[in-house]
Design a binder for these strands. Sequence first.
RNA 1: CGGGAUGUAGCGCAGCUUGGUAGCGCACCUCGCUUGGGACGAGGGGGUCGCAGGUUCAAAUCCUGUCAUCCCGACCA
Length: 569
Amino acid sequence: MKMSKLFVQTLRDFPQDAEAISHKLLVRAGYIKKLANGIYSYLPLMKRVISKVEQIAREELNKAGAQELSMPFVQPAELWQKSGRWQVYGKELLRMKDRHDVELCLGPTHEEVITSIVDGILTSYKQLPVNLYQFQLKFRDEIRPRFGLLRGREFIMKDGYSFHTSQESLDIEYKNMWGAYKRIFDRCNLETKVVQSDSGAIGGKVSHEFMVLTETQTGEDDVFYCKHCDYAANSNHATSKLKDEITTTRFTKEEIVDTPNIRTIKELAQFLKVEENNILKSVLYIVDSKPVMVMIRGDKEVEETKLLNALCGLEIRKATEDEAKEITGSEVGFLSCIGLEDKVKVLFDKSAKNMKNFVIGINQPHKHMVGKNFTKEHDFLDLSLVKEGELCPHCSNPLYVTRGIEVGNIFQLGTKYSEPMNATYTDENGQNKPFIMGCYGIGITRTASAAIEKHHDENGIIWPLAIAPYHCVVVPVNMQESEQKDMAEKIYNSLLSKGVEVVIDDREDRAGVKFKDADLIGFPYRITVGKTAKDGLVEFKTRMTGETVLLSPNEAIKKITEEVDKLKG
RNA sequence: CGGGAUGUAGCGCAGCUUGGUAGCGCACCUCGCUUGGGACGAGGGGGUCGCAGGUUCAAAUCCUGUCAUCCCGACCA
């Protein structure tokens, strides 16, 4: 490709409306252009990167025995009504009607479609297991799209689905996909950490996420991990042991005390000269329009996803102060489960289990009770957010927290879709059984963005060779010097003939412009044909290391060809 | 949906307080000059100032509404 013909416009300045470095660089280097909030055009350079990531995934998945297909982007509401998700999915599902008033939606995921396809084709246990995948546009009407391609409303996803006759068979495929995913991200030069996670709207029991760890805000998930064993989990799923599991106070007798205008746990602890972990905190939520009170140790926070799952709920929010008054008759700061257990659903977090002689509200303004103990059995559930420094549930060493970008995930769905959709096969005994399913996703456009988040410097993108739009750029420093121009063209043509993806910067611009653009766009290798051309030498620069060496044209060609051949394995 | 901010040329911005013929830098076009890290000179093209009302002799500027975008919280690949 000639640079003079390449459809790209690089910008002098970073775009004002971008925050994430990958977003800034993709816009500035001319990879993407925004059409609407969270919706981007993929320009030729971006399209090439996407194709590279897809091809790596395709190769590894095919090797792992999966088969590629392609399903429709627009889906009938009928399917979603069958699975029950038409009501459940909420506003993220973009719905519409066609000219006949038939309800449709844009596919945010494809469990329903694949299940209906497979149900029509696979009828016997002899045909299972099977694993099918596609690369597809997805549309999710996100509450808050941001960070460019990291969280767009429209994005490209690799989604795969497997069908089985038994849990054992699913387990095997789950591990198979786990391995394939590791290899895919390795080949993209992305180090990932596999973490346990909540399965969210997709559903199912077992699920793992592949996280690219980052220090910045662009990693939108908190990941807790142990340095001594392989425990790692998303904050919405992480669990821990407390360092101070048993807590008690000097108050050995139940007593009501005045706590005037003391509304926060911190104030209360100071006022009564106890620790925050001596206070049993009451937090009031509204889950699917019904009040729910969570009793949790004062130094801990409620993890709302866990609470929602415990109740099999759909929608959760904290109660407002007015609602709290109405429900408890008291004021925020003095809430309690005492006397409320018949009226309101009360749940206990496991952090409260070993509290003795604790402090608790009594639903009376400006009063608390001290020296309280549990008088009857409660179920203590895991409803709390883990904090850094708490102990690993496996090996009791301290847990650490970091940020992560979720680039892929795998789920065991079980019969969550096949049962309501009545998708069955016939087993050895002639019985109809619902398919046992797994599902496996990779955010292709997100993976490309994550690669930039991890690989860039102040000059621009530093693509790993495997997913760079081109392997190499050839820069004739001065197009007026025929010696340089001719040598550059020879090298360019030679690389082309060897299957190297190469751009020649044939523009009349000065060298500085070409160098800046080469760095910004992120070509992994640059061959500069300049002053040393008359001595039969060119400059060979590796973007990743900044290393520059003088080589003969043939040596430079050989070096790149070798690197490219390594990719092909 | 709640909190904060912004909409003026492809990109980055000034002008708005105190209404009076729409400007700067980059990019783009022409000519000259230059050619190893975003040169220089001269000339040129491009904007219904987000949109709709209102106030006024006169609105980018003041008022009202509306739409869009971005940032901080609840979603997820």
